[in-house]
Design a protein around this nucleic acid. Structure first.
Length: 451
RNA sequence: GGCGCCUUGGCGGAGUGGCUACGCAGCGGCCUGCAAAGCCGUUUACACCAGUUCGAUUCUGGUAGGCGCCUCCA
């Protein structure tokens, strides 16, 4: 299993630790609003990466944090008129509910920043003791120039960094490059904790350094997240953890952005499409399929047309299972096992999901042409690795009224009363059923959900 | 301005120094009472300009355009 490592810029093997565990830490959301399709991409990518690794025999452990204390949460809570802790709790629950609907299971651990305060304070204290951080007016800042490796992940040099920030404001920093580890409690902030530097709360980056270590140890296999986190978030995590003597992540993996039009979907751009709405309109299979229809590192275009395509692809796969049963007899030149190997090879090669999906569709096409023993099993297994084996499930049985109409239509057809038969077909369509005639008789299929 | 990435057929989106990616949509056909599903065929795809090469969409250089990060962001 090789993944393109952001730090070295090269494909590198994923290395399990001594216990044989592949620890994966993926940055989760800051819960100040419902998550959108773009936020769902890393959730899907890393959930499926864990799934694939497990299917390959690794013991994978996925940790996805929730950042539930943050400036934006204070702001959003205030405008919602509720205490920020309560607001964060509600949004965290909404995040769990929304991602549950993707049907990919939960990460193995989902730590909250607010439940990691003790460890956060301890690490900051350690950094201060080691000379890598300093207290100033109740805040604590990381001393960037004390860490030689700063900039190695995002390929920036400290000399070239924009230092013009906070022009005019009375910064307490020794150096404009320094970033906050701990922030003194301010007016209007209704959550705070005791620390050696007074009441306050953690700044943005520090919680991930601590949570990753608490859940996965001082060194772990993969650290992931959206490409927009490379700088400063992940750069700062490296600085915090490595300055404190940790080996930290052995490989960095970043997913590209979901774009609408030609722009990144982001809450600040206002061009968002909520995950829950996408699930309502297109169904979980189409949403998951859409999110893996492009390589994880590339930007991915989102739009109604793209989602309709995903719905149509799901339908094609579903139709395959409607007409191809498991345990099909016969012989064929087509080797489903070989397809499955190519599918797994594609995933093992920098998690190339579009290439893997092409193998699925190749086999579906082959088996639609001729009966291929084992094809249905292989397709279902491949989809299973991608969390999409629900597509193989048989349709819910039609209700009695629909079945009666279908029988009536069969009678009309037998009597060559096609006008009547077509009228019944329209009636069934209005009830959500599509009639499909075949030599084996007519069947009812649920109409596909379309946006 | 700095760093990184991208430009593939109507759309989405892989990939490769010479061999049909795949899917969606359109068109024609087969099948069908008609449809649907499925199958077959189909519209000379690789931004532009040079260079390397027997041969480049694939490598190198440049041009144009676009995106991301540099401030909160998956």
């Amino acid at each position: 299993m090789r993944i393109r490592d952001t730090l070295s810029g090269e494909p590198r093997a994923i290395e399990a630790d001594e216990e044989g565990v592949v620890g994966i830490y993926a940055c989760g959301p800051t819960v100040y609003s419902r998550i959108h399709i773009g936020n769902a991409r890393p959730f899907v990518v890393f959930s499926l990466l864990r799934r694939f690794l497990e299917s390959e025999g690794y013991a994978a452990r996925l940790v996805v944090n929730v950042t539930d204390v943050n400036d934006k949460i204070y702001v959003a809570a205030r405008s919602a008129g509720v205490p920020s802790a309560e607001f964060a709790r509600e949004m965290t629950q909404a995040y769990f509910a929304d991602t549950d609907r993707l049907g990919l299971g939960r990460p193995d651990a989902e730590p909250l920043a607010t439940e990691t305060i003790e460890g956060i304070v301890a690490l900051i204290y350690e950094l201060v003791e080691g000379g890598h951080a300093y207290e100033a007016g109740g805040d604590v800042y990381f001393r960037v120039r004390s860490f030689d490796g700063y900039g190695k992940l995002s390929n920036r040099r400290t000399e070239e960094m924009d230092q013009g920030e906070e022009a005019g404001s009375a910064s307490l920093k020794e150096d404009p490059l320094d970033f906050a580890l701990w922030k003194a409690s301010k007016e209007g902030e209704d959550t705070s904790w005791d620390s050696p530097w007074g009441r306050g709360r953690p700044a943005w980056h520090i919680e991930c350094s601590v949570m990753a270590e608490e859940e996965l140890g001082e060194s772990f296999a993969v650290h992931g997240g959206g490409a927009d986190l490379v700088f400063p978030h992940h750069e700062n995590e490296i600085a915090q953890s490595e300055a404190a003597g940790r080996r930290f992540a052995r490989l960095w993996m970043h997913n590209g952005m979901v774009e609408t039009g030609a722009e990144k979907m982001s809450k600040s751009e206002g061009n968002i499409f909520q995950l829950s709405e996408a699930l309502d309109r297109y169904g979980r299979e189409a949403v998951v399929l859409f999110l893996i229809s492009g390589h994880y590192r590339q930007p991915l275009a989102f739009g109604p047309e793209q989602m309709e395509q995903a719905v149509a692809q799901v339908e094609r796969l579903r139709n395959f299972f409607r007409t191809h049963q498991l345990g099909a007899p016969g012989t064929s030149e087509v080797d489903p096992g070989a397809r499955r190997e190519l599918f797994l090879d594609a995933l093992a090669d920098d998690f190339n999901t579009p290439r893997a999906l092409a193998q699925v569709f190749e086999l579906v096409g082959d088996a639609n042409r001729e009966e291929v023993p084992g094809a249905a099993e292989a397709v279902r297994d491949m989809l299973g690795v991608l969390g999409l084996d629900s597509i193989a499930e048989v349709d819910a049985a039609a209700d009695a009224a629909a079945e009666a109409l279908l029988a009536e239509r069969e009678e009309a057809r037998a009597a060559k009363d096609f006008e009547r038969a077509d009228a019944i077909r329209a009636e069934l369509a209005a009830r959500g059923w599509e009639v499909r005639d075949s030599s084996a008789g007519a069947t009812l299929v649920p109409l596909a959900a379309r946006g």
